[in-house]
Amino acid sequence: MREMARVILESLIVVVVGTGIALVANVGSDVGLELRRNYFKPVGSRPSVPTADSSATTQPGDQAATRPAVQESSSPVHAAQGSAAGEVANKVEKLVKEAGLTPLRHDEVAALFHDPQYQSDAYVFVDARNEKQYHEGHIPRAWRLDHVNPQLTLDLVQPFLLGAEKIVIYCHGGDCEDSLFTAGYLRDTVGINPSILHVYTGGMEEWASKGGPVEKGERLSGDITTGGAQ
């Protein structure tokens, strides 16, 4: 009995010391988490930067006033219906619309990608996945910026974001919401006008599966394959 009590005490010490080590290691890590931050906080609707005409009638946070107008400007929903993948895609697309942002389909993203404006940085693509996934393959010229650790790349990307006419954000695809959370971060923290923020809900998985060019390694590495699988 006494021996068992000793084992239980030993196990408690292991848990306490292990948790302590974890908290210290987390603080020292570039990819550590903030204990008190809600990483999955719903991205609420916010108005576009008010113009002289609209500022008198639209109050910040007045979701009911802004949502219908934003939804009218949204692109058509995904064609995929019935299948589980289609349901997931539609669910994410619904969340994007509810946040007052614009979802994009693959053909719309491809058109922006091939537009000369993309080469001149008027259109900016943002990959919201982690560094490892980005290096495994991203849309050529896309910047990496995720909402979890934006400080890692924001200084580099911010000038391009502030000068952009359109910003397309994507993550893995499927039920991935990181593109939505990153869009919310750019809107709420960086101050990007939501009217230029677009979310490619099909994400990298759809881009690669439909034969879109994929760049490996760093941005502008030149290591580009067409139709490369993830």
Binding site: T19, A22, N38, Y39
Partner: peptide, 18 residues
């Protein structure tokens, strides 16, 4: 979410420690 974050922070390192 704080509890969820705590598990995500602590569990991997606790496993390494064990």
């Amino acid at each position: 979410y704080v509890w969820m974050n705590l598990v995500a922070i602590a569990l991997p390192w606790l496993e390494v420690f064990c």
